[in-house]
């Protein structure tokens, strides 16, 4: 039985192979984290297609299903929360880090090339005969639940332990009950401050928005009326423009005049 790839497989490889390399380069060089994750997802999908082309159907589909569908999606889920505009700073935090990286990468590459270059492979058995005799999935199942059953069971126990550990460590139990609306209002009254609640953000005839602080009776803006998130983000505007505009209009009105 010849194990040389057919024309179809060769065409598939020469189209998808460069794409996979491109995806992995994207993972390293993309500035935005989401673009990097997408490059990695592309590489994973193409790897899955390669497995399928080499008759390892189950492995290929599981590669797409698990890595692209679940693992990368979770990565993306976290990355999306980082924000659209954020990109990694290109400032070097460790001195001489790039040079060290280059040396190490070249060394590892040289080592791998030397080691892999001198390996002699036996004639590959090929999956095709197994696929036709026992079937791809059954043969896989026989190995997972037969020969390697302990390896798999121990690995799964380890993973479950790790997941539970992460949950236990990250989970914070609330000590006592949280305050509800009623408790808050009672507290306000007992302390005698802001009995009617905090002032609402500025309501002007011309500008009615949460980013404009309310004015106190003496005309000064009160920062209490704006959400502290907006203050932290530096997105609070000053009410002066609107006050001036109102003053201008007020100046035009004369006492005892009728229109």
């Amino acid at each position: 039985m010849s194990n040389a790839p057919g024309t179809g497989e060769a065409v598939l490889f020469w189209i998808l192979g460069p794409l996979a390399v491109l995806g992995s380069l994207g993972l390293i060089f993309a500035k935005k984290a989401v673009h990097a994750a997408l490059g990695m997802a592309l590489t994973m999908i193409i790897l899955g297609i390669f497995y399928i082309a080499q008759d390892a159907h189950f492995l290929g589909v599981i590669q797409v299903f698990v890595y692209t569908g679940a693992v990368m999606m979770l990565f993306l889920f976290v990355l999306m929360l980082v924000g659209v505009d954020s990109s990694d700073g290109l400032l070097e935090t460790l001195k001489g880090q790039r040079l060290a990286t280059a040396v190490l990468v070249l060394g590892l590459g040289g080592l791998l090339t030397a080691a892999l270059g001198s390996v002699t492979y036996p004639e590959p058995a090929g999956v095709k005969s197994i696929n036709e005799e026992t079937g791809n999935v059954s043969a896989m199942a026989e190995l997972i639940f037969g020969r390697y059953v302990w390896v798999f069971e121990v690995t799964s126990a380890l993973l479950i332990t790790a997941a539970l550990g992460a949950m236990v460590l990250a989970h914070r139990e609330r000590l006592g009950k949280g305050r509800n609306q009623r408790d808050w209002s009672k507290r306000r009254v007992l302390r005698g401050e802001y009995v009617a609640g905090l002032p609402a953000p500025g309501v002007y005839a011309r500008h009615n928005a949460v980013d404009t602080p309310a004015l106190l009776p003496d005309g000064t803006p009160t920062p209490l009326s704006v959400s502290r998130v907006l203050t932290a983000r530096d997105q609070v505007t000053t009410p002066e423009r609107y006050v001036e505009a109102e003053d201008r209009i007020a100046g035009q009105i004369e006492e005892d005049s009728s229109r």
Partner: peptide, 19 residues
């Protein structure tokens, strides 16, 4: 031999579009 799994895998990739 893994046709139904293929459907699930493709659905998993399809979610990328929405996300």
């Amino acid at each position: 031999p893994v046709a139904v799994l293929l459907v699930l895998a493709i659905a998993g990739v399809g979610i990328y579009g929405i996300v």
